[in-house]
Design a protein around this nucleic acid. Structure first.
Lengths: 242, 242
DNA sequence: TGTACATCAGTGAACGCGCGTTCACTGATGTAC
DNA sequence: TGTACATCAGTGAACGCGCGTTCACTGATGTAC
C-alpha cells in the first residue's frame, strides 16, 4: 500500500471520495444506519468491492464523521480568518482601528449555522443522537475541537486587548472553577475564568439553537429563524463582553 | 372497541403498556430503528400479534414519542409545583416571604436534566436527530409544549411581581420583535419581550447543555458535569433577572 | 343459572425484501528487469 | 524497448441472518338471552 504507484494511488483516492460522497447522500435518507450495499449499488459496483476501500461499515462511518468535523472546522476557521484579515487591511490602510471581536464572534456563529443548514445530516451525525452500537475512535478528537479552538482564539485576542472587566478575573467556586481554569489554559490562557464561563454558555447556546432549528424544535414557535439566530447570538456577544 | 368489556379493556391496556415498556428498552440498543419482531420476541409472542395493538412500527414510535414528551412534561410540572407549594407554605406560616422565582427556574432545569439522564434514549428520541423517514403527526404538539409552558408560568409570575426592569419593555426590532410578542402572548402575556428573549436563549442553553452532556460533546472537557450545569443555569437565572 | 354466540388475542406460515461480511476467482494495469 | 510478473480492483456466489406486514386460522373468554 505504501509502495503503491502514484497513478493507482490517485485512482484509489478518487474512488474513496466517490464512496464517501455517495454515503453522505445516503445519510439524508437512512440516517446513521446507512447501507453499504446501497452505496455499492449507487457506485455501480458489487457490494463486496467496497471492502477494498473500507474495512467495515463502521470504518466508513468514522471517515464520514471525521470529514464532517473537518469540514465544519475549516469553514469556521475560514470565516474567522476572513474577518481578521479585513480588520488588518483596514488598520494597515489607516482607515480605522477596529478590534473586530464581536464581528469575529458573529462570523463564527454564522459559519456554524450556515454549514449545518447546508449539510444537515452531517451535522446530525456529529451533534445529534449518538449512533446506536457505534463508538467513535479517539482519533476524531483533533478534528472535533477545531471549531472550539476558533472561539478560544477570539477570547484570547479579546483578553490581550483588555476587553474583559478586571473583576471578571475572580476565581469561580470549585469544582467548576478548577475545570474552567484547565479549559482556559488550553484554549485562551489570557482570558479570565468568568469570561470563559460565559463564553462556554454562549457556545452551548449556539449549538443548541442550531440543533433546535434543524431538529424541528422551533417549528410553530419561531417564524424567521435566521433573524432569531442573529438576535440571540448578538445578545451573547454583548453578554460575553466582545 | 368502544363497546369493549371492562375486563378486556384492562388487559388490553396492560399489554399495550408492556409493549411500550419493552420497546423503550430497545431504544437503548437500536435507537429509533427499533424492531417490532424483537419487541414481540421479548414479549413472548409471535410478531404479528403486535398488530393487535399498534397498526405499524411508526404508530408504536409515535406512542413512545408522546409518552416521552408527557413524561418530561409532568416531571417538570411537578418540580415547579413542589417549589411553588413550599413557598406558599412558608408564606402562610408567616416564616418568610419568598417569591421563589430563581428556585423555580433551577428546579425546572434540574427536572429536565434529571429526566434526561434517567431516560437518555427517550430524550434522544424527542430532542436528538429526527428519525429518518419518520414524520411526527401534529397531535404531539400539546404534549411537546408542556415543559416550555412551565417556563412561561415562571416568567408570568416574575412579571406580575415586577421583577423585570421597566426599560426591558422596549420593543425589539422586527421580525424578531413581532415573533417574540406572539410567543409572549401565548406563554406569559405580562412579561416584556426583552425578558422573553433572554429566557428563550436560556431555554435553548438548558437543552443545549443537556444534549452536549448526553451526546458526548463535553467528554474530555468538562469533568464535573452536574456542577457545570448548576453553575451555568444559575448564571442564566441571574441574566434573565429571576 | 345455563347456554349459544360474537368478540378478539394470539398463531403460524408466507411474501418479498433487506443487510454485512467472507472467499476464491478473474483480468487489467502498472513495474522491474 | 519489450516482456514476465506481481499487484490490486472488482466479481459473483454464498452464509446466515434480519425485517415489516398480511392473512386465514384457532380457541378462549366475556356477554346477551
Amino acid at each position: 500500500m505504501a509502495a503503491m504507484s502514484g497513478i493507482r494511488a490517485r485512482a484509489r483516492a478518487q474512488t474513496t471520495d466517490e464512496i464517501k460522497t455517495i454515503a453522505r447522500r445516503h445519510l439524508a435518507t437512512d440516517g446513521a444506519n446507512l447501507s453499504l450495499r446501497a452505496v455499492a449499488r449507487d457506485l455501480g459496483v458489487v457490494s463486496s468491492a467496497i471492502y477494498r476501500y473500507f474495512a467495515s461499515r463502521d470504518d466508513l462511518l468514522t471517515a464520514l464523521i471525521l470529514d464532517a468535523y473537518n469540514s465544519l472546522g475549516s469553514s469556521v476557521e475560514a470565516a474567522d480568518k476572513g474577518v481578521v484579515e479585513a480588520a488588518e487591511r483596514a488598520a494597515a490602510s489607516g482607515v480605522f482601528e477596529w478590534d473586530a471581536l464581536s464581528a469575529r464572534w458573529m462570523a463564527m456563529c454564522h459559519a456554524v449555522r450556515d454549514w449545518a443548514l447546508a449539510a444537515p445530516h452531517e451535522y446530525a451525525l456529529i451533534y445529534g443522537s449518538p449512533v446506536p452500537g457505534y463508538r467513535a475512535p479517539q482519533d476524531t478528537v483533533p478534528a472535533a475541537t477545531r471549531a472550539v479552538r476558533v472561539l478560544g482564539g477570539i477570547l484570547q485576542d479579546a483578553a490581550l486587548r483588555g476587553r474583559f472587566e478586571p473583576d471578571a478575573g475572580q476565581p469561580l467556586p470549585d469544582p467548576v472553577g478548577g475545570n474552567l481554569a484547565e479549559i482556559t489554559a488550553a484554549l485562551c490562557p489570557a482570558a479570565p475564568p468568568a469570561a470563559m464561563s460565559r463564553a462556554m454558555g454562549a457556545w452551548v447556546q449556539l449549538f443548541g439553537t442550531v440543533s433546535f432549528e434543524l431538529f424541528g424544535q422551533l417549528e410553530n414557535a419561531v417564524g424567521d429563524k435566521a433573524a432569531f439566530f442573529e438576535h440571540q447570538m448578538r445578545a451573547q456577544a454583548d453578554y460575553i463582553g466582545l
